[in-house]
Amino acid sequence: MTRVLLFGASGFIGGHVRAALAEDPRVGEVLTPGRAQHDLIAGDVDALTALLRRTAPDVIVSCVGALGGTATDLLEGNTLVAAKLLEAAAEAAPRARLVRMGSAGEYGVVAPGRSVHEDDALVPVGAYGVSHVAGTRLFTIADGLDAVTLRVFNPIGPGMSEETLLGRAAARIRAALRDGVDEIQLGPLGAYRDFVDVRDLASLVGTIVLAAHVPSRVYNAGSGRAVTAREAVALLAAEAGWTGTIREAGSGPSRSATVGWIRADISRARDELGWTPMRELELTIKDVWNAGERR
């Protein structure tokens, strides 16, 4: 039975990963140290090494990272976390498999209509992408360790935060319905994005956790489909039954504002691991809305 040490289980991605692992009978135990027990970002390597010695995991999964903040914040949350995991594992759990969440932001600007492959050039457009490129590179060159990075595209699903586009759109549509308002405002919605259901992402994590052998160090975690953010928000409004106007103003997040198109080539995960995403965007949008209604 596989013993998993999961960091970030209280977050959006980590929570779904925890649920997927807990449901799999091949997983014997899922340990989820909270920040009080060990903070991957603020904690030091010695404390992490001691934790790995105490828990003796077969697999270590990190769903911890930084989406925003200063360049220092991003490097600490994404690059240094990867470095700490590798250093501690080499000392205390050298046979454990390590799995971290990277980002589609590592690719940077992509030619419209093209799917990005794991071996494509990495030309990130800001500190966020740079911080993940560095973290992924550390995992890729880690000699003697079984280290895997998932380049996560745009994860969506039940429990999304209002810090995300669709989470924010759902909250504003819900408020508009409540208050009888016929207009909401969001940022620019013309960019094409690859929205992957977080439950499909969690399934890929589970596949890697339990695989006898993982052939590659990096896998794209996307849907293989690109739609505009505008189309995704329109699907959400239709699911809500709201027919008002969505006004676009301001600017998008700095980590991806200059990237007008992104779509994952997911053939490596399919061919090497037998994984394919199962949920269509329309179903995921429905579940996003219904989850908010239940809350």
Rank of each mutant, 00 (worst) to 15 (best):
V123K: 14
V198A: 01
A171S: 09
I41P: 10
A96C: 09
R247Y: 13
L235Q: 12
G8M: 13
L235I: 03
S267A: 15
D24G: 04
S10V: 02
N154M: 12
A92E: 08
E162C: 08
H117S: 11
D146K: 00
E183D: 06
G292P: 03
D179Q: 11
A232K: 07
A175T: 08
T136A: 14
A147K: 02
I285H: 00
Y219D: 07
N220Q: 10
V288W: 00
R225K: 12
V133K: 10
A127Y: 05
Y219H: 05
V45I: 10
L51Y: 01
V30D: 09
Q37G: 03
L210Y: 03
T245F: 11
E76R: 15
T32N: 04
A175M: 15
I41D: 03
H213P: 00
I262K: 05
I208T: 06
C63G: 03
T70V: 04
P215Q: 03
G68L: 07
V288N: 00
R255V: 12
G11K: 13
A89C: 01
L166I: 06
S223W: 11
L281Y: 01
L122A: 05
D120N: 02
V218P: 14
A142R: 14
A83V: 14
L98I: 09
T32W: 06
G65S: 13
V81F: 04
Y219F: 14
A96N: 11
R178L: 14
N290C: 12
G292N: 06
G69Y: 07
V288T: 00
G69I: 04
I246E: 04
D200N: 11
R199F: 09
T149A: 15
M160G: 12
R178K: 10
A229L: 13
T79A: 14
G241N: 14
D182I: 07
R54I: 07
D120G: 00
I173N: 05
L51K: 03
G129M: 04
A170I: 01
L177A: 11
Y128V: 06
H132C: 11
G167S: 10
A240R: 05
G77Y: 08
V214N: 14
P57E: 04
S115W: 05
T70M: 13
A237V: 03
P188D: 07
D120S: 01
E293I: 12
G250E: 04
L236F: 02
H213F: 07
L165C: 03
G292Q: 11
L165R: 00
D182F: 07
S251N: 15
R178S: 02
L98H: 00
P33E: 00
K286E: 06
V30R: 08
L138A: 14
G222E: 10
E293Y: 08
H213S: 10
G260W: 06
T228K: 12
R26W: 02
V59F: 07
I141D: 13
A22L: 15
G15T: 06
R35P: 01
H38L: 15
R168H: 08
E293M: 10
L98D: 00
R151Y: 00
